[in-house]
């Protein structure tokens, strides 16, 4: 009787991509913010070349985290604004499919912003950032951020303070993801041997799995009434 899980997931992802392809609101907001952040960090901290090299992984990940918060807020507010979440909830579907669908959409946007950001950062900071391993860290890091973010944004979209609440509740819980991603990125960029930073990548992967499982199970509780 229930609509198959992946048909729902596909429907939601297709819908989100379609809407974004038409309006390009979300991606342009995220990208402009990310670029601003890169420039302003370097500018405000008055970084010299050495300091830039040390700071870049932190700057990169804080930027990605905030950019994904912007995207998450927008994406979940859209579901709330016209009551669309209710319209989805009265359909004969598994609620976890809504989570996975929204997660994939948010993840694709965050990953795309990260992928566009890296060459720009390489250019601006004059660092060799284009690296397969760095891309892998980005794949994992943005996944972790999107997972916990999708759950929390669904929650905050239903509160009175809405958009302003998400960074406050999300940043501390995103910390394990950001910290491990920063460590791995620093290790890769400083050219250390793989055994020095591969552990961080493993830890990041484990955190992702734990977060995904926890959010997948708990999503039902943030959409019921």
């Amino acid at each position: 009787m229930q609509t198959p899980f992946f048909r729902v997931v596909y429907g939601i992802v297709a819908k989100d991509l379609q809407a974004e392809f038409r309006s390009r609101e979300l991606l342009s907001l995220m990208l402009i913010f990310a670029l601003l952040s890169l420039l302003i960090f370097s500018f405000a901290l008055e970084l010299d070349r050495l300091a830039r090299e040390e700071a870049i992984s932190g700057v990169l990940w804080v930027t990605v985290a905030f950019a994904s918060i912007i995207g998450l807020n927008r994406s979940l507010t859209l579901e709330r604004e016209q009551g669309n979440l209710d319209a989805m909830l009265i359909a004969p579907i598994n609620r976890a499919a809504i989570f996975v669908g929204k997660l994939i959409g948010n993840y694709l946007f965050a990953l795309l912003v990260g992928v566009l950001l890296i060459p720009i950062a390489a250019l601006l900071y004059n660092l060799p950032l284009i690296n397969v391993w760095l891309f892998i860290v980005l794949v994992f890091g943005t996944l972790g951020l999107s997972g916990i973010g999708t759950l929390l944004a669904t929650m905050t979209a239903q509160t009175r303070t809405r958009e302003s609440l998400l960074p406050v509740v999300m940043l501390p819980l995103a910390l394990p993801v950001v910290l491990t991603a920063v460590r791995a990125t620093t290790g890769i960029l400083s050219g250390q041997p793989a055994e020095n930073w591969l552990g961080w990548l493993h830890l990041l992967a484990v955190i992702n799995v734990v977060y995904f499982a926890a959010c997948f199970i708990m999503f039902e509780f943030v959409v019921e009434e």
Binding site: M1, T3, P4, R7, V8, Y10, G11, I12, A14, K15, Q18, A19, R22, S23, E25, L78, E81, Q82, G83, N84, D86, A87, M88, I90, A91, P92, I93
Partner: peptide, 30 residues
Amino acid sequence: AQIGLVSHKLLLYESLTARENLRFFGRLYN
């Protein structure tokens, strides 16, 4: 599966076309 809801809220995506909206919700009903 046997309930349809119309509310004072639109329950539609404003950035999608009429057809895209219907296609999305139709998919949810398999």
